[in-house]
Design a protein around this nucleic acid. Structure first.
Lengths: 106, 106
DNA sequence: GAAATGTGTAACGCATCGGAGTACAGTTTT
DNA sequence: AAAACTGTACTCCGATGCGTTACACATTTC
């Protein structure tokens, strides 16, 4: 299941796979993507998330045919975000079923 | 494909399907979820997104066995966000392939 | 070795967003 | 009539994406 491993930050994929394959520097990639270099750097090093806008930039830049589908980038980001949220957020919520049962009992 | 229709806001599903099925008022649901009523209301009416935290709340509340998986809520939200971003954001980015070609030509 | 280039990152400022809290108006229920 | 429910606006707070600027460090090039 998807809960069994620590999903990588999408920026990691970008930094380790995409940029080397294109033989591009961070500076060049930032220029081509139309974003500031520090902004891209933050994404590459996991300090900022892939925003919907950034996902669209990547899609237009890489092309949907080349693994650049915006929804996939966003899905990976969501997977990463959820994983992080699971470790830092522990809500204690009574299941709706239980609540419904006590409702039925009443 | 996923690009063909306007994906609904996840809050809509919550308001139209889940709450009626549980026979719960917005006020009651907010109490059980441990969030403020206006906060939940904003989600239900599409004025706020399903955050990772909210997705976890829903998961614990509804139970993973009952369609309450956090990743599914987040995926639907991402789908909605991406759709919105596509309408409002039109980046003009030269495909990396083209950039690579002009690189090769040089 | 000096200059240029690339890189990470910090520190701002700005806009946006989720969430709590409060308040108000309008509706429905009792 | 009174109580409950609802949407929504407003303020406050903390976090986040992004741009800009600036710095230190490394690598490359002359």
């Amino acid at each position: 299941m998807s809960r069994m491993f620590n999903p990588p930050h999408p920026g990691e994929t970008l930094r380790e796979d995409i940029l080397p394959a294109l033989e591009l520097t961070v500076t060049q990639a930032a220029e081509q993507l139309g974003v500031a270099r520090p902004s891209l750097s933050r994404v590459l090093n996991g300090r900022a998330a892939i925003s919907p806008e950034m996902a669209l930039r990547l899609e237009q830049w890489l092309g949907v045919e080349n693994g650049g589908r915006a929804d996939l980038w966003l899905a990976e980001q969501a997977s990463y975000d959820l994983w992080q949220a699971r470790r830092s957020f522990k809500p204690k919520i009574k299941p709706a079923i239980a609540a419904a049962k006590s409702n039925t009992a009443a």
